[in-house]
Every structure is written in C-alpha cells, then in structure tokens.
C-alpha cells in the first residue's frame, strides 16, 4: 500500500461502490447537465415569459400578457404572409425532396457501375454553404439571360421571372433546396435500402412478384422508418428555412413579400427592430406547431411505419 493510498484511506470516509459511481458518473456528464439547464431548460421557460412581454433588450421586459399573440394572429398582416409562404415552401420542397431522393437511391441501389461517382455528384451540392449556393442560383435564374431560362427557351418555354416574380420566386427557392438537399436524402435512403435482406427479395422473385410488386410490398415497408425519419426532419428543417431566403431576398422580402419566410420575419423582429417579445412569441408558436406535427406524425406512422425492434 502506497503512502497516498494510506492517507486517503484515513482522511476520506469510505464510500460505497454506488456512491463512488454516482460521484464519477455525475462528474463525467456534468458539462451536459449544465448545457441542458442553461441552453435548453432555461431558454424554454424564459421564452414563455418573454413571449408575454414587450422587450427591446435595453430596457427591462414589460409584462403585456397575450398582446403579442393578439398582434400576431389578428393585427400583423405580415405574420400570415410569412405563414402562407412557409407552408407553400414546406408543402412542395419536402415531398419533392423525398421523391427525388428515393428515386435516385433506388436507381443507385441496382448494382450500377460507377455508383461512387454518381453518389459524389448528387451529394456535392450539399456541401456548398447556403449563401454561396443561393448566389449561384441567382445567377442561374437570372430572368433575362440566366442559364435556366435559356434552357427553357430551347425547350420552347418562355422566360420565367424566378426570384424577381411574385409567382416564381418560391419555386425558385424550392429548386435551390432540391439541388442542395436531395443528395443527403438520397444517401439516407440508400443506407436504408442496403439493410433490406437480399433473401426477402429473392423469395418474392421466386413467388413471381414483379419489380413493381416487390417495390410496394417489400421495399417501401422495409424502408418506412427511413421515409418517416426523412419526412420529420425535412418538415422541421424546411419550416425553419432562413439563409437561402435571406440572401435571395437581398435584405428585403422578395417581390410582394413572397420570400418572407417565417424565420426571416422572426429574425427581422428580433434583430432589426429589437422586438424580442414579439419574436419570442413567434418562436414559441412555431415550436408548438412543430412539436404537434411531429407527435401527429409519430401517431399516424404506427399504421405504416414498420419498426424492426425497440432497441436499435
């Protein structure tokens, strides 16, 4: 027995094994407990408080009850504009992204030669920062002489106004999101497809199922968790679209406010007008909507999502 051990034996009361484990365990996870308290629990509670105040950061918050929510739902026309813009964006960007990602993954999953090349090509746009990719697409979507309109001209379709037109600004933004996001979705689907046991497919082929039947009876149920995950994450992410709209609208909100996304309005209220109370109320509403949407999806997914087993 060394001297140190001997001393510690005398000075420190002997702890039971459980007490020692508790002590070391909590020391290891201490940073995370602090993070949960300071960066998650406190902000969640505080956001409920701030949403019921008028607060510009400089002066102390002033309690105004539900006035922010009244302003939001009944008075501010921009609020509903931002809601409908965001809903439009989510409604098209998420299903289109899922469909394209799945089709590409299915094609790549069929023993394609050069799969590595295609995979890289589809994923590469996902690496480009939203600011850079939005600038690139502003060039491509130029209404007069952009490459996209010139291509459409070759196909006999007239020039579209894209980001300068109230009708085409959001489709332009959705196009950008498809270019940047489809690759990631495809990679996730591809991994899901690789998990399908080959024996299952062979058995179905033996029974005479054609490719179409195999797709609906085996592939879709077997990757339903992946579809579900992509759907939930896609919806949560798309509702919070910001950087591309911010850059594409060039410090504004796009033609006739058509690029005024929810997060853009929230950002303006918080950090341009320092209307923190109103912004906190907006954030709270979006949070509640997203949580409800996620729970509803989880509930309904029980009918079509086939979880393999509980402890994955």
């Amino acid at each position: 027995m060394t001297v140190v051990q001997a001393i510690s034996k005398i000075t420190m009361p002997r702890l039971s094994r459980q007490a020692r484990d508790n002590l070391t365990g909590y020391l290891f996870v201490l940073p995370w407990i602090l993070s949960l308290l300071v960066f998650t629990a406190y902000p969640m509670i505080a956001s409920i408080y701030f949403s019921m105040t008028r607060y510009n950061v400089l002066n102390p918050p002033q309690w105004i009850g539900l006035a922010n929510f009244n302003e939001m739902f009944r008075v501010d026309p921009l609020y509903w504009t931002s809601v409908s813009n965001t809903a439009y964006y989510v409604f098209f960007a998420v299903p289109l992204g899922l469909a394209f990602g799945l089709v590409l993954a299915l094609l790549l999953n069929q023993n394609v030669k050069g799969i590595g090349f295609f995979r890289t090509v589809f994923y590469l746009p996902g690496l480009v920062p939203a600011v850079a990719s939005t600038l690139l697409w502003m060039l491509l979507l130029n209404p007069q002489l952009g490459l996209v309109n010139q291509l459409l001209g070759v196909l006999g379709i007239g020039k579209l106004g894209w980001l300068g037109s109230p009708t085409w600004s959001k489709p332009g933004l959705i196009l950008m999101s498809l270019w940047g996001g489809t690759g990631g979705t495809m990679l996730i689907f591809l991994a899901g497809l690789k998990e399908i046991p080959q024996s299952l497919i062979e058995a179905a082929m033996m029974d005479g199922a054609n490719a179409w039947q195999r797709f609906w009876v085996i592939t879709i149920p077997m990757i339903s968790t992946t579809i579900f995950f992509n759907l939930v994450m896609g919806i949560i992410g798309s509702f919070q679209v910001f950087a591309s709209a911010y850059v594409a609208a060039g410090n504004g909100a796009g033609p006739l406010n058509t690029l005024l996304m929810y997060m853009l309005l929230l950002y303006r209220n918080a950090f341009r007008y320092f209307n923190m109370g109103y912004a906190a109320a907006m954030a709270l509403v979006l949070f509640v909507v997203l949580v409800i949407l996620t729970l509803v999806m989880v509930r309904f997914s029980r009918n079509w999502v086939h979880f393999e087993d509980a402890n994955r």
Binding site: Y42, L266, F287
Partner: peptide, 22 residues
C-alpha cells in the same frame, strides 16, 4: 431527457439564449 431534446426544434431557445449572452 437527452434523447427527447434531440428531435426538439432549436428555434424556441434562440431569443432567450441571445438575451442571456447579451
């Protein structure tokens, strides 16, 4: 608790966190 925060939309913490750092 950790798992439940994983899927939580981060948006709700934005304003109070900013106020805290301010």
């Amino acid at each position: 608790v950790t798992l439940s925060t994983m899927m939580m939309p981060g948006i709700v913490t934005l304003i109070p966190t900013y106020v805290l750092f301010k």
